[in-house]
Nucleic acid binder design. Structure first.
Lengths: 148, 148
DNA sequence: CGTATTTATCATATTCTCATGAGAAAAACA
DNA sequence: TGTTTTTCTCATGAGAATATGATAAATACG
C-alpha cells in the first residue's frame, strides 16, 4: 500500500514521537531499535527534515526530533515525500484524466474508496496512532496493549 | 495501488469482456487499442490463461477469450496472480503479525479501510464495471434503471 | 504440404527501489 | 586544537518490475 521507504519514515516518526524527551535521537538508535538499514534511514529522515517535519542536528548529542507537534502531523505529510498518494494513482485503471465527468469503468465504485483512503492519511495524525497504543483495546480485542 | 502489470491485466480483461463476439482477440489488437507493450501483455495474459481466467488459442484466428462469465469474474481473480492484495500488505506498518489481539499503532484505524478495499476487489465483478460504462453518468451508487 | 498467423518462451535491456559503504562536513567538548 | 560523534553526501550495487526483440511451437487454411 505504501512503499518500504515511506513505511520506514512512518515508523521512525512514530518512534520519535514516543521518545520525545527534549534530546534528539540518533539514526543509529532508531535503526537498531526498529531493525532498519541505518544509512538508508538516514537519507529518508534527511528528506523529512528538509520538508520541515523533523529537525536534525549534527555532532555529539545530535540526531533527529519532531519539528511539528504530533497532533498536527498527519500521516499524509510523512508519506507524501516518498509516495504519490493522490493524483493519477487515484484511477484504478491508470488514466491520467478520470473524473465524474469523464469516468473510467471503475471510477464510480473505486473513487469512493480512494477518497476514504486519502482522507485517512490526511486526517489521521501521529498523535492519533500514539494514543491508540496507550489505550486499552476496544470492544473487539482481548488483550490490552502495553506502551513501550 | 495496483502494479502496472495488474493494471494491464485488468484493462485487457475489461477489453475482452466488451468485445466478446465468439472469436478470440489477438494480443496485437488489444495492445494496439489499449497502448500497451505487446510482448509484455502477451506474457501477462498467458498467466491469466494458466489461471483459467482466459482461454488462449494459437495460430490464425487465435487469440484470447474470457473463460469465465464476466459476472462471475472478480477483480480479485484478475489482479491476484500479479499483486499480493492481502496478507502482509494489510498492515500499514509492515508487521508480519498484526491483528486485533496484537495490533500495531495503526491497526484499528487502518484495518477497517483495508477490509473495505479487500471486499471491493473480491466482490466487484467485471460485469459490474462493464455495466457502469453503459449507464448514464451521474449515478453515485447502485444500478440505475435501464430503459427497455 | 507449405505458408501465414498467432501464442509461447527465452534472452536481454532498462528503470526504479532498496540497500551498503566510504568518506566529507558540522558540532560538542576536553 | 584535536578528537569524537553525528548527519550529510556521493558512489555503487543487488534485485525486482517493466519492457523489447528474437525465435520456437502450434494451428488454420490454401
Amino acid at each position: 500500500m505504501i512503499s518500504q521507504t515511506a513505511e520506514y519514515a512512518l515508523r521512525a516518526v512514530l518512534y520519535l514521537a514516543r521518545h520525545q524527551n527534549g534530546d534528539p535521537v540518533s539514526v543509529e538508535t532508531i535503526a537498531d531499535d526498529l531493525s532498519m538499514p541505518r544509512n538508508y534511514l538516514s537519507k529518508t529522515l534527511h528528506l523529512l527534515a528538509k520538508r520541515g517535519i523533523l529537525t536534525s542536528a549534527r555532532g555529539p548529542r545530535g540526531g533527529f526530533e519532531l519539528a511539528v507537534p504530533s497532533d498536527e502531523l498527519s500521516l499524509f505529510a510523512i508519506i507524501e515525500p516518498f509516495d504519490e498518494l493522490e493524483g493519477r494513482s487515484q484511477c484504478l485503471l491508470g488514466r491520467r484524466e478520470c473524473s465524474d465527468q469523464a469516468p473510467c469503468a471503475a471510477h464510480h465504485r473505486w473513487q469512493r474508496l480512494a477518497q476514504r483512503v486519502s482522507t485517512f492519511f490526511r486526517e489521521t495524525t501521529v498523535e492519533d496512532l500514539i494514543a491508540e497504543l496507550s489505550e486499552p483495546s476496544g470492544a473487539t480485542a482481548g488483550h490490552a496493549s502495553r506502551p513501550g
